[in-house]
Amino acid sequence: EEEKYTVIYPYTARDQDEMNLERGAVVEVIQKNLEGWWKIRYQGKEGWAPASYLKKNSG
């Protein structure tokens, strides 16, 4: 089951394993960790993003 989330704040990656996020983008969360960083898939790429910048899509 894919978990789709919408980006609610833009984010600029500060590290090579982080993802740039555009507000309104829909991403797939593939791994959650306890530090508040989630691994996401977006446009065929995978990387880490701050969970607080993502909002779960309803339905």
Rank of each mutant, 00 (worst) to 15 (best):
E28T: 11
E1M: 14
A13N: 04
S58T: 06
V27A: 01
G36Y: 11
P10W: 02
R23H: 08
P50Q: 05
S52I: 04
S58A: 05
E2Q: 05
V7R: 01
M19P: 06
W48E: 03
A13P: 11
A13E: 03
E46V: 12
G36F: 04
M19Y: 04
L54F: 13
Y53A: 15
V7Q: 00
Y9D: 15
A13Q: 07
Q16T: 09
Q16D: 12
E18L: 07
E2D: 06
G36A: 05
W38Q: 01
Q31L: 07
G44N: 04
Y9R: 15
A13F: 04
K32Y: 03
L54P: 00
W48R: 10
L54D: 00
L54K: 00
A49G: 05
P10G: 11
E35Q: 15
E35Y: 06
T12H: 12
N57F: 15
T6F: 09
P50D: 05
V26C: 06
Y42M: 06
P50N: 06
S52C: 04
V29K: 01
R41W: 06
S52F: 04
A49T: 09
A25Q: 03
G59W: 08
E35R: 13
K32R: 12
I40T: 02
A51G: 14
E22P: 11
D15M: 15
E22R: 10
E3P: 11
W48Q: 11
Y53K: 07
E46G: 02
V29G: 01
A51K: 13
P10L: 01
N20H: 08
N33Y: 07
P10N: 13
I8N: 10
V29F: 01
R41K: 15
E3W: 03
I30H: 03
S52L: 03
E18T: 11
K55S: 07
E18G: 13
K55E: 14
M19W: 05
Q16R: 14
R41M: 03
K56I: 08
W48C: 05
V29W: 00
P10D: 11
V7P: 01
G59I: 05
K32C: 05
R14M: 07
R23Q: 15
W48P: 02
A49M: 13
E2T: 14
T6L: 10
E28A: 06
V26D: 04
R23I: 09
V7E: 00
E2M: 15
L54I: 04
Y42S: 14
G47A: 08
N57Q: 13
W48F: 11
K4I: 15
N20T: 11
E18A: 06
Y5G: 01
D15A: 13
R14W: 05
E2K: 08
A49S: 03
